[in-house]
Amino acid sequence: MDTKRHIVHIDLDSFFVSVERKFDPSLNGKPVIIGGSKERGVVASCSYEARQYGIHSAMPSAQAYKLCPHAIFLHGSYHRYSEASAQVTQIIADTVPVFQKASVDEFYIDLTGMDRFYDCYKIATDLRQKVIRETGLPISFGMASNRTIAKMATNKAKPNGQLFVEHGKEREFLAPLNIGAIPMLGEKTCQKLYEFGIEKIADLQRTDIRFLQTVFGKFGRNIWEKANGMDDSEIVPHSDRKSISTETTFDKNVADKKTLENVLVSMTEELAFKLRKENKLTSCLAIKVRYANFETHTLQEKIALTSAEHILIPGIKNLLARAWNQSRPIRLIGVKLSQLCQGNYQINLFEDNEERLNLYNALDKINFKYGEKTVCRAAGMEIGTRGFNPFMRG
């Protein structure tokens, strides 16, 4: 007999805004937007009061200002968010046996098998109350037989609520919802389905899977399965891997600053791309310098959570200037990004504008499709045009 799965999706409501409200209660009940100023930047998070005006994450701040001129714009407090996320993560780790941290404010928990001894819904309820009690942050959860339904149940329960979709009632729960409620179903896909008169998930449930496969290829089956409440993806246990690094050994010792900086740019780009690909952020960067006599020096620096090259590269160049005795040629150089945590790229964009966000998205799409380093910064390209192979992978 198949074991019934009990998957919980837990999500901190308007996380950045909620953290800011802890420190400034005067923000309660007001439309708050995190991410730059009203003139420039991108919305990283917004309160439910702001969402009533049509504002959402990733929207240009200037557009958000037009929709709600009386909104309160805040740049954001990186370290506060990181500390709050770590506190919630520790509470969850101390309470449940298996969980996956999907981002700084989102978690999946697997309670499968515990129903033989405990009430799984009560476990999730008690956990939610513990987080609220110990952190003062509003949090919602959904519980169901798989990840997709659990996440959709959380979205239905928000703000600051909880919902259990009983086993066998998945299709019934999904049927009245708009197709846009299905996670990972993009706007273009939804528009295509709307053209065929498919608006509710119930419409998708009645649609022949062969038609969806004809229109969307292999993705058509995935759409049909999600609409019918099918998802066998596993909860990947939370990983404690805390760093990624790369280093370069030169064929000949190098003392040219420009060459060293170009190599560092290329290496930092590579690591930053890996961070975004794995949905991770770093809060500490380090440089490693080894001279011809094998004397080795390392230097590190704490930074705000990020996965963006335009933040990491200047930091790495600054570390090079501090760590390198420029009278001595270098045999090996390396970059390390540590103190990693789960989190998507949006958290890095408090100071960014729409153009920079679009640029990163475009570069990553090309590199995801055609392989790493298909496109890169001009400084990184110079390495390959100087007529020598500057490094071998360490």
Score class of each variant (00 low, 15 high):
Thr3Trp: 05
Lys4Ser: 13
Lys4Asn: 13
Arg5Phe: 03
His6Phe: 10
His9Met: 09
His9Ser: 00
His9Asp: 00
Asp13His: 01
Ser14Asp: 04
Ser14Trp: 02
Phe16Gln: 08
Val17Glu: 06
Ser18Thr: 01
Phe23Ala: 13
Phe23Pro: 03
Asp24Lys: 14
Pro25Ile: 02
Leu27Cys: 06
Gly36Asn: 02
Ser37Phe: 03
Glu39Thr: 14
Ala44Leu: 11
Cys46His: 05
Ser47Asp: 03
Ser47Asn: 04
Tyr48Arg: 03
Tyr53Val: 11
Ile55Cys: 10
Gln63His: 02
Tyr65Ile: 03
Lys66Asn: 04
His70Cys: 08
Ile72Cys: 01
Ser77Leu: 06
His79Leu: 14
Arg80Lys: 15
Ala84Tyr: 01
Thr89Ala: 08
Ile92Asn: 02
Asp94His: 10
Val96Arg: 13
Val96Met: 03
Ala102Val: 13
Val104Lys: 02
Asp105Arg: 12
Ile109Asp: 00
Ile109Pro: 04
Leu111Asn: 04
Met114Thr: 09
Asp115Met: 05
Asp119Thr: 03
Cys120Val: 15
Lys122Ala: 07
Ile123Asn: 03
Ala124Trp: 08
Asp126Gln: 09
Leu127Arg: 12
Pro138Asn: 04
Ile139Phe: 00
Ala144Trp: 06
Asn146Ile: 09
Thr148Ile: 14
Met152Asn: 05
Met152Phe: 07
Ala153Met: 03
Ala153Thr: 10
Asn155Pro: 00
Lys156Gln: 14
Ala157Pro: 04
Gly161Ile: 06
Gln162Trp: 10
Leu163Arg: 11
His167Tyr: 08
Gly168Cys: 00
Ala175Tyr: 13
Gly180Met: 14
Ile182Met: 14
Met184Ile: 10
Leu185Phe: 10
Leu185Asn: 08
Lys188Ala: 10
Cys190Phe: 00
Ile201Trp: 08
Ala202Leu: 13
Arg210Gly: 00
Phe211Ser: 06
Val215Glu: 14
Phe219Arg: 08
Gly220Phe: 07
Arg221His: 11
Trp224Ala: 09
Ala227Phe: 11
Gly229Pro: 04
Ser233Gln: 01
Glu234His: 01
Ile235Phe: 03
Val236Asn: 07
Glu247Thr: 10
Thr249Cys: 04
Lys252Asn: 02
Lys252Leu: 05
Asn253Tyr: 04
Asn253Gly: 01
Asn253Gln: 01
Val254Cys: 11
Asp256His: 05
Lys257Ala: 12
Asn262Pro: 09
Asn262Val: 05
Val263Lys: 00
Val265Thr: 15
Glu269Met: 08
Glu269Ile: 14
Asn279Val: 08
Lys280Tyr: 07
Lys280Met: 13
Phe294Leu: 13
Glu295Ile: 10
Leu299Pro: 04
Gln300Asn: 14
Ile313Asn: 06
Lys317Met: 12
Leu319His: 15
Arg322Met: 13
Ser327Leu: 07
Arg328Met: 12
Arg331Gln: 12
Leu332Arg: 13
Val335Thr: 15
Leu337Phe: 10
Ser338His: 03
Cys341Ile: 05
Asn344Trp: 08
Phe350Pro: 00
Glu351Cys: 04
Leu357Thr: 14
Leu359Cys: 09
Leu359Asp: 10
Tyr360Ile: 15
Lys365Leu: 11
Asn367Asp: 09
Phe368Trp: 07
Gly371Arg: 09
Met381Ile: 15
Arg386Asn: 06
Met392Leu: 09
